[in-house]
Design a protein around this nucleic acid. Structure first.
Lengths: 117, 117
DNA sequence: AATATTAATCGTATATTTGCGATATATATT
DNA sequence: AATATATATCGCAAATATACGATTAATATT
């Protein structure tokens, strides 16, 4: 008898470095205009309940909830349940970390690179 | 007789602002670790031919070519054909524009927000 | 206790992204 | 001229993302 192991569906993303994934994960979180708008709304109000965001966006409540979940997962916001409502805030630490790594990767030291093609 | 117009497959993303889309488009370009790695390699060497990038990444040549095309489309790199080779450079202007808009949207003025939840 | 409100989750349809091998194209080399 | 090299593009399969309505669950209000 022969046993055939189904090849572990390896994720190509694992073949890149930690920092590369850290940057791309953050970028992925803000790679949709709805999520940029959500973050902006929370930042503007300093704190925001879910319903306030739904009122302002051209999306269904369930869709907004899904976007909020993604932002939470990526650590860009924090959330807490207050009674029947859910409150969200920006997690600035994650933003600071992103900016630091971003600058580390893409320092504009050679902004006017003479050998640029 | 009745004519039924197939609903124009409207793009939800068009319902968000110009700035939101500008940010999300840039973020989308760096939302994959392969593209972060490609950009980093080009930045490190100041200029890069396609083959050098292929040698360094765990991806097929055709896949790298596709990622480069996306980075070009989003304006993060510039490219020029030199004989049989293709040379790429970082387009720092786009990076500067991104950082400007990013800070405009997410100023950390309230980094230690007292009413944070 | 019955009803209303708020938000998360489920199921599903559709669209987009990712990745590769094969092929095409254009320039170098022999 | 024939062959080799470099890279873009095509066609396809698989995975992931987006969006919504319906449902669920939990708390408020009457």
């Amino acid at each position: 008898m022969r046993y055939i192991l189904k090849e572990m569906a390896i994720n190509k993303k694992d073949e890149f470095g930690k920092k590369e994934n850290e940057l791309s994960d953050f970028a992925n979180a803000i790679s949709h205009p709805a999520r940029v708008a959500i973050l902006n709304e929370i930042a503007r109000r300093e704190q925001c309940i879910c319903g306030e965001i739904v009122d302002v966006l051209p999306l269904a409540q369930s869709t907004v909830s899904q976007h909020l979940k993604e932002l939470l997962k990526a650590g860009l916001i924090t959330g807490s349940i207050e009674g029947v409502k859910s409150c969200y805030c920006i997690n600035w630490k994650t933003f600071e970390k992103f900016e630091k790594t971003f600058n580390e990767f893409f320092s504009k030291a050679n902004s006017n690179n003479p050998k640029c093609c």
